[in-house]
Design a binder for these strands. Structure first.
Length: 276
DNA sequence: GGAAGATGACAAG
DNA sequence: TTGTCCTCTTCCC
């Protein structure tokens, strides 16, 4: 289940497995069958990610545009492909490796124009070295929307999902409901720089770990937890459990349509000076 | 065996 | 704001 780091890693794995190679393309489930047939036997150029979007380029400037949505998965494995298990919408294989796509919200065959349109609608991606954090800041500093809302808006910045939103705001001690236009530029830069580090680490290890060494269960003398998303986090989906830093119960509230998590002590609610 | 959720995004009203 | 879609897992009866 995907935030930007998952897609970035996926692009790397797909490129390693298939770039420069002819591939068989199929749709065992059937919903991508016509396009798969058109692509079958083509040579893969490369795969790339931008935010939560993935493009697999095949010869002839043809791109398979994939967005995993909330529940999609794209598994890249080595070896010959076995009989498909479950609803495999897209399978790419070359005898030495195979990749199965399931549950994606988008799986379309597109051309360069559509690809450019999708990329153009995205804010800067902390995983891309050419990303310009100031472009996002110009949106944040003018907005009265909560920062927890802005961080999930892919046109403001691309690749952050619900886990990174909760975790980066905890690490920077900023309440999710704090309006964007009350942040100082230094706080924004701290959020961005932290995302660059956290997401790069997410790509490297393949899971989301955000807990600093001094706050790990071992360092705090507590039993290790086994989070069901695979990583070690401060507040994400820890509602009611003790904050790893101050022991207060972690709180939750729906923000921008998604569950938001924070510690009321470590991330005090912002009070506008104008009100006082 | 069924309901509820889940790291997402969109359209409709 | 609500409803809808995608698939799988976990939980409850």
């Amino acid at each position: 289940m995907p935030e930007g780091h998952t897609l970035h890693r996926l692009a790397t794995d797909l490129t390693a497995a298939f770039a420069g190679r002819r591939v068989r393309v199929s749709s065992p489930q059937g919903r991508f069958a016509a396009d798969a047939a058109a692509l079958d036997g083509a040579t893969v150029v490369a795969a790339e990610s931008a935010g939560k979007h993935l493009f697999v380029e095949l010869e002839g400037e043809r791109y398979v545009h994939v967005h995993l949505g909330l529940i999609g998965s794209f598994d890249v494995r080595s070896g010959a492909a076995p009989a498909p298990v479950g609803q495999v919408r897209l399978r790419i294989e070359n005898g030495e490796a195979y990749a199965d796509l399931r549950g994606a919200i988008v799986c379309d065959l597109v051309g360069p124009e559509r690809r450019a349109t999708v990329l153009g609608a995205l804010g800067p991606d902390p995983l891309r070295p050419d990303a310009d954090p100031d472009r996002a800041w110009q949106r944040v500093r003018r907005s009265t929307r909560p920062i927890g809302d802005l961080l999930l808006d892919q046109s403001v910045l691309a690749g952050v999902g619900n886990v990174y939103r909760a975790e980066v705001l905890f690490r920077q001690r900023i309440h999710p409901q704090r309006p964007g236009n009350t942040l100082r530029v230094g706080q924004w830069r701290a959020i961005w720089d932290d995302l660059v580090v956290l997401m790069a680490e997410g790509v490297r290890v393949g899971r989301i770990d955000t807990v600093r060494p001094e706050h790990t269960p071992e360092a705090m003398g507590r039993a290790a937890r086994d989070d069901d998303h695979g990583g070690e986090v401060y507040v994400y989906r820890r509602t009611g459990q003790a904050c790893l830093v101050c022991q207060r119960p972690v709180r939750t509230e729906v923000l921008a349509g998604r569950n938001s998590f924070w510690c009321a002590r470590c991330q005090p609610r912002f009070r506008s000076r104008a009100v006082q």
